[in-house]
Design a protein around this nucleic acid. Structure first.
Length: 383
DNA sequence: TCTGGGGTCCTAGGACCC
DNA sequence: TCTGGGGTCCTAGGACCC
């Protein structure tokens, strides 16, 4: 989708179509999506909101409405699945489709692309762009260059002439750091990378990345999709983090925030039916340096208080003294389906323990909303 | 009052085991 | 002429994606 969040938000506000519009958070947030009018001012996603107002004082800021984004996304994915069952979902607004088995029924890839685009336009009132190619990274680069509201087809015979003039930073998977590293080595275009001997490239950037860059530069990367037809791949980790409204060194505030985050993560884990053993605490200081500390516990868990206890211990083990924090986060890794582990009963553990309490909270939350039941320390205005 | 929040994958080093 | 060698698990950090 083109400028997905902004396009969806603007469906409700057609009066703003000619105005620079961004969807973004308040306070210390960043731009989640900018419409193409705003982009003319140099506004783009991930830009701090404070800079957006300086670049474009008359910008209109809309709040994200995730419930609607998710609904629109589901409809869009449904449209994709009418084309082919082989769909690899990348994010809410983007997917790879393997249309090799659909051409008899629906026509050439370009015809399929235009059909999908017009369906989404008619049904959802937003535009999207499509790249057509034999491998995912070439398709991805093509779709970026097709934006907004376009289609680019790169036939196999034209892959190198399409890719080679591009900057290495245009490759899918090459970000700011890798681009700078390659530029420092004199490799500026995709062609430069393609014509560097593989072993020389691997000495520069490591074996794996070197191999990967070479494949990207010749357009010979992956061409089979990870499309579990229908069901999604289970998540490998789940986490939550939050930037404070202002930096803090107050242990009580921090530990309380860790509880909020632990409850959020554990609730999502229980809803997904997964448990995990490795709990990671993330801390970002005022100067933006960020560290993470992890601990693997003997028993996989989805229990709020257990995750919170581990996170708090990890925090205390940092031994911070009056260092102000900008952000804290909690993540649980190495997730496995809950049904694959059986919980070891500890001696002395009460039978209806925290697990049962969490289940009860989940039931209350489902019926009455997330504000219904909370740890007492998270109740605003408590005595 | 610069710099969100959700993820994935890779690397590197140390502990530990056979 | 001394410190094998391979594998797994764990932790920390970093790059990248949307």
């Amino acid at each position: 989708m083109d400028a997905f969040y902004a396009s969806v938000a603007l469906r409700e506000r057609p009066d703003l179509l000619d105005q620079p519009v961004v969807v973004g958070g308040r306070g210390r947030g960043v731009v989640l999506a900018a419409n193409y009018v705003a982009r003319r001012y140099g506004v783009h996603s991930a830009l701090p909101m404070s800079r957006v107002r300086r670049l474009c004082p008359r910008v209109v800021v809309l709040e994200p409405d995730y419930a609607t984004f998710i609904t629109v996304s589901a409809s869009v994915m449904e449209t994709f699945r009418e084309v082919t069952p082989v769909v690899e979902v990348l994010s809410l607004d983007e997917a790879f489709l393997d249309v090799r088995g659909s051409t008899r029924r629906l026509g050439s890839p370009v015809e399929i692309a235009e059909r999908v685009r017009s369906t989404i336009h008619d049904e959802q009132g937003i535009t999207c762009s499509v790249g057509v190619a034999r491998t995912i990274s070439v398709a991805k680069v093509a779709s970026r260059r097709a934006k907004p509201d376009g289609v680019i087809v790169v036939p196999p015979s034209e892959v190198t002439s399409f890719l080679h003039p591009l900057d290495v930073g245009d490759l899918y998977g090459v970000g700011e750091k890798t681009r700078a590293l390659l530029h420092r080595s004199g490799l500026r275009t995709v062609k430069d990378v393609a014509h560097t001997p593989l072993d020389a490239l691997q000495r520069q950037v490591g074996v794996h990345l070197g191999r990967h860059l070479h494949d990207l530069a010749w357009g010979t990367d992956r061409d089979e999709l990870n499309a579990s037809t229908g069901t999604r791949e289970p998540e490998r980790s789940m986490g939550a983090d939050e930037t404070f409204g202002r930096d803090t060194d107050d242990r009580e505030v921090i530990v309380r925030e860790l509880l909020r985050l632990s409850a959020r993560v554990a609730g999502r884990m229980r809803a997904a039916g997964v448990v995990g053993r490795t709990i990671t605490l993330k801390v970002r200081f005022s100067d933006f340096t960020t560290i993470a500390r992890a601990r693997t516990v003997p028993e996989a868990t989805d229990v709020t208080v257990e995750i919170h206890r581990t996170a708090t211990r990890l925090f205390d083990a940092l031994g911070l003294r009056h260092q102000r924090l900008r952000l804290v986060g909690v993540r649980v890794e190495r997730l496995v389906p809950r049904c694959t582990v059986h919980r070891q009963l500890a001696l002395g553990e009460p039978d209806p323990g925290w697990t049962e309490a969490d289940r009860a909270v989940d039931r209350a939350t489902r019926r009455f909303g997330s504000a219904a039941v909370r740890p007492a320390s998270l109740v605003v205005g408590r005595p």
